[in-house]
Design a protein around this nucleic acid. Structure first.
Length: 599
RNA sequence: GGGGGUGUAGCUCAAUCGGUUAGAGCGCUGCCCUGUCACGGCAGAGGUUACGGGUUCGAGCCCCGCCACUCCCGCCA
């Protein structure tokens, strides 16, 4: 037998038994006469004792020559630790294994970085951790993340099974659909010059599955997007992909709320409140300046357009005169913002095309600002009332088009919150989760540069039924049946009720998005055709599984919840991918490089 | 594509204004140690300061370039 117990199993009731433990040498304490070796496996650790009076000299010599993280098999008798030497820090601390035999299964070289001391190990450069990922994953935090990921995935599958969903796998070798994210393409050896593409999401397949009568589909689906990366974005990632037939928006909300309630219970033993509040896109922008608001703190945006319509301060009145708005937010307690912080905020405003950023510092009982001299007493009273101004506050203004003003202040709101957090003046409880649905997004947005409409979400999103007549007359006003699920300012996922009638889908492709009909047919013909043979009304959602895990694990980076993530440049430091391929492989594919081949 | 940050011993970091032989903790090697659990003690080895140029009497430090990692903007239907 290779082993009889794991390293988190032995208790006083095992005393007297012979145990065989296998695992890694977590730490070795050589006292000269006696050697203690903590053997660790994924369940925990157990102290083994090597006492020369009970051992052959070569076993003792072997034990004294072990290095940390070597893999061993220890056979011995379980016994109670002597009085006063018990270790209450570990569950097996009441007992120890008096070793009789030691088998060194793999002697480890000195490690490139230490993993036995959690605080030191957590600070190791990520480059090093990624190169030696197998060592990094031995750390308890990372092992916990892997285990939690498994637990959450399993809980999701159980939930979907209970709800009558089928998990259906969809192809990874798909075809290019140039709308949306840049794709990874895969050359087809059988017909040189043609290519597969890896899916950005299984969107079209899951809709086809609805036409196929599956009714309730889900998949923990791997997706690929060849875009630049972030802490919360990888080239390949996993989404909980769902589609349902014969549903309206409320059915999707209830299904997702039930799922998240289950997952939060399983992962964190927390009861989250459902149903989630719903907020329209317009209200989210108006109050928080962003379509994924973090509602755990206030500092909401305030509209002052009416107050400054006739102001002698031309920057404000001018903005109103040209159809814009004046908005402000109160960054509570930030009157002591440094020059650099003010410059950062001004930079945010300028990045949206504003000329500058007006602000008021409330210090020493007075409003310090170059623009206060333009304010009437009525202006000041309105500010005081609407923004609840107190000593130590910092008031920031944006006078611009509605969307721009909202976005500027939305960014500044988050920046101000970060500053307040880093100085300990704003703290958010780690077990607080503000879920909400953002709804009523505009179906379409207008691209000024290319003078055309494009889908805010994707071209399969159904319009809100009562807005359907506006599609040809006033596209800007058409709301989509699209919804985003947001928690603590993070977009967890989004979806929509889809178009299931071929003539409406055709109108969106050809008349609204201006995709020529032959192109639309080449790209989406099979979908339009499928819709002609009995397509049920349907809708769905996709939740970012990695982001969800990052939130549950309390880490800012999804790399911490992915076993083998890629770097910001898309490389794998452990396997050194991507790499050059053999010229023979290129010849087979009829591909020729225009850059010198890399070694 | 653009902007910011980082890069010094195996790891984590220090090195005053540009000035002597680049230091510390951990790890590693050797010796001592029979109840430790981050064991302890003594001794020792270990450096192309990411890389390539430049300025200077003198560069880890300043300048130019470049590489890697990272955060952000663009991008992510």
């Amino acid at each position: 037998m290779k082993r009889t117990h794991n390293c988190n199993e032995l208790r006083p009731e095992h005393i007297g038994q012979t145990a065989i433990l296998c695992g890694w040498v977590h730490s070795r304490r050589d006292l000269g006469g006696v050697i203690f070796i903590d053997v660790r496996d994924r369940e925990g650790r157990t102290q083994t004792v090597f006492d020369p009076s009970d051992l052959t000299s070569d076993v003792f010599a072997q034990a004294s020559g072990l290095r940390g993280e070597s893999v061993v098999r220890v056979t011995g008798r379980v016994r109670a630790r002597p009085e006063g030497t018990r270790n209450p820090k570990i569950p097996t601390g009441e007992v120890e294994v008096l070793a009789r035999e030691l088998e060194v299964l793999n002697l480890a070289e000195p490690l490139p970085f230490q993993i036995d001391e959690p605080e030191a190990a957590a600070r190791v450069n990520e480059e090093m951790r990624l190169q030696y990922r197998y060592l990094d994953l031995r750390r308890p935090e990372m092992a916990r993340n892997l285990r939690l990921r498994h637990k959450v995935a399993t809980a999701a599958r159980v939930y979907f099974d209970e709800q009558g969903f089928l998990e259906v796998e969809t192809p990874l070798l798909f075809k290019s659909t140039p709308e949306g994210a840049r794709e990874f393409i895969v050359p087809n050896r059988r017909e040189p010059g043609t290519f597969y593409a890896l899916p950005q999401s299984p969107q079209q397949f899951k809709q086809i599955l609805m036409v196929a009568g599956v009714e309730r589909y889900y998949q923990l689906a791997r997706c690929f997007r060849d875009e630049d990366q972030r802490a919360d974005r990888q080239l390949e990632f996993t989404q909980i992909d769902v589609e349902m037939s014969f549903v309206e928006r409320a059915d999707i909300y209830a299904m997702v709320e039930g799922l998240l309630k289950r997952l939060w219970k399983v992962a964190l033993d927390l009861e989250i409140a459902t149903p989630f509040p719903q907020i329209s896109f317009a209200e989210a922008m108006d109050r928080f300046g962003i379509d994924k608001p973090d509602t755990r703190f206030g500092m909401e945006l305030c509209d002052l357009t009416a107050e400054f319509r006739g102001s002698t301060f031309k920057v404000f009145s001018g903005a109103v005169a040209s159809g814009g708005v004046v908005k402000a937010l109160n960054a509570k307690g930030l009157a002591d913002a440094t020059q650099g912080q003010i410059e950062t905020m001004t930079g945010i405003a300028k990045s949206f095309g504003a000329k500058g950023l007006a602000f008021i510092k409330v210090e020493g009982g007075e409003w310090k600002s170059p623009i206060v001299k333009f304010f009437t007493d009525a202006n000041k009273a309105a500010l005081q009332r609407l923004l609840a101004i107190e000593e130590g506050d910092l008031i920031l203004f944006a006078a611009d088009s509605w969307l721009n003003a909202c976005e500027i202040l939305g960014k500044i709101r988050l920046y101000a919150a970060d500053v307040l957090k880093s100085t300990g003046r704003l703290s958010l409880p780690p077990d607080r989760f503000d879920f909400l649905w953002v709804i009523d997004f505009p179906l379409l947005s207008f691209d000024k540069e290319n003078n055309r409409w494009y889908s805010s979400h994707h071209p399969f999103t159904a319009p809100v039924p009562e807005d359907l007549p506006l599609l040809r007359t006033d596209p800007r006003k058409v709301r989509g049946q699209h919804y985003d699920c947001v928690v603590n300012g993070v977009e967890l996922g989004g979806g929509s009720i889809r178009i299931h009638r071929p003539e409406i889908q055709k109108t969106v492709f050809e008349d609204i998005l201006q995709i020529p009909s032959d192109v639309a047919r080449a790209r989406f013909g099979y979908l339009l055709e499928a819709f002609q043979y009995g397509a049920p009304p349907h809708g769905g959602i996709a939740l970012g599984f990695d982001r969800l895990l990052a939130i549950l694990c309390g880490t800012p980076s999804i790399r911490d919840v992915i076993a083998f993530p890629k770097t910001a440049k898309g490389t794998c430091l452990m396997t050194q991918s991507p790499a050059a391929v053999d010229p023979k492989q290129l010849r087979e594919l009829r591909l020729e490089l225009k850059v010198p081949p890399k070694e």
